[in-house]
Amino acid sequence: MTISRSMLAGLAVATFGLAACQQDAAPPADQAAAPETAAPGTSGNGVVRDEIVPEAPPAPTAIQTQPGSDGTQFALLKAAVTGDILTVTVNCTSEKNKWAYMNFDEISVIDDTTSQRIGVLKDNAGAWMGSPLSGKDRIGLNCSPNGVIWVKFPAPPATSPTVSINLPGVAPFDGVTVAR
């Protein structure tokens, strides 16, 4: 086999390039002996990294607040329609250890346009659509320091922009704009 000068020159360039890469990859002896330690918050090469701490989501803003019995306060957090269902979410707070109990058949929404009373929905098995449950037919929640309830209703027609929400033992939430 005969090797031409151009093949020999190409082989020499490739060998030299490979030797140069291997030399660059090996750290100097003084760096190899002492592993690099970085100060907290740095990457070891002088770059300072800030620790990112996720912020807690902001507390929901109350649409309205009404007094309840025994020093409790109820804040309406949501009255929104999704599809054909209106979901109402309320927060109950108290400085003392107070519980609020509400029978589902006493909770209602009034369509402000037609004055029609709308009761709480039941699922296909006949269970009330609301939480937290305290027995089969009522909601029970500890208001100390706070507790959240939600209840689902058939949605009022789109021509009814506001509703009034009635919870037993709580002043009514009147003229609530329905989010759609």
Results as ranks from 00 to 15, higher is better:
47 V>M: 12
18 L>A: 15
166 N>T: 09
180 R>N: 14
153 F>E: 01
179 A>P: 03
15 T>V: 14
60 P>W: 00
51 E>F: 08
136 K>D: 06
68 G>K: 06
53 V>W: 01
51 E>C: 08
126 G>V: 07
138 R>F: 11
117 R>V: 15
130 G>V: 09
40 P>Y: 01
46 G>S: 12
79 A>S: 13
91 N>K: 15
10 G>F: 00
123 D>M: 13
115 S>F: 02
114 T>E: 02
29 A>H: 07
6 S>A: 13
122 K>T: 13
38 A>N: 11
116 Q>W: 00
179 A>G: 06
141 L>D: 03
19 A>R: 13
84 D>A: 10
157 P>N: 06
123 D>K: 12
156 P>D: 06
174 D>Q: 10
156 P>R: 04
91 N>T: 11
161 P>K: 10
66 Q>R: 14
146 N>E: 14
11 L>N: 11
162 T>P: 01
23 Q>Y: 04
37 T>H: 07
32 A>W: 00
157 P>I: 08
25 A>C: 08
40 P>D: 08
167 L>A: 03
45 N>M: 12
174 D>S: 12
179 A>N: 09
116 Q>E: 12
87 T>Y: 00
61 T>M: 13
125 A>Q: 13
133 L>V: 10
118 I>C: 02
67 P>E: 05
128 W>A: 07
27 P>K: 04
92 C>H: 11
108 S>M: 07
52 I>M: 05
151 V>N: 09
20 A>Q: 10
98 K>P: 03
135 G>R: 09
57 P>H: 01
119 G>D: 14
136 K>S: 09
